[in-house]
């Protein structure tokens, strides 16, 4: 998104929940008014960025939900999955095999 396009939006940081498990982490972003077609998720230089254009308006401009997280090397970037439902963007970030906790039986 260039600077001209950015001026058309009011940028808002969406609230998020992150639930971490052994094999994956699930991130929920609240992006009311944005459908799947208006959501962009990208990973660049280990930084995950989500952008969602909403039809809601604030201060006379359309709302753009935008938030970034720096990912650790433990995330399997190639297998990140995203879906939207009822204004919530759900990202599933699987852990790389090498980063998963393995229990070792003690003999």
């Amino acid at each position: 998104m260039n600077n001209e396009q950015k001026k058309m939006f009011t940028e808002i940081t969406p609230v998020a929940d992150i639930i971490e498990e052994n094999e994956k982490a699930t991130v929920y972003f609240e992006i009311p008014g944005a459908s799947a077609g208006n959501v962009k998720v990208e990973v660049k230089n280990s930084t995950l960025t989500i952008e969602a254009e909403s039809y809601l308006e604030r201060h006379g401009k359309k709302v753009l939900f935008k938030r970034s997280f720096e990912l650790s090397d433990a995330v399997d970037i190639d297998n990140i999955k995203a879906k939207t439902q009822d204004g919530v963007l759900t990202l599933t970030l699987p852990k790389a095999e090498s980063a998963q906790v393995k229990k070792i039986a003690v003999e």
């Binding site: 982490a25 997280f69 720096e70 650790s72 852990k95 980063a99």
Partner: peptide, 9 residues
């Protein structure tokens, strides 16, 4: 932020 992130924005 655990394994997921080192810091957030």
């Amino acid at each position: 932020m655990g394994f997921l992130t080192k810091r957030n924005d």
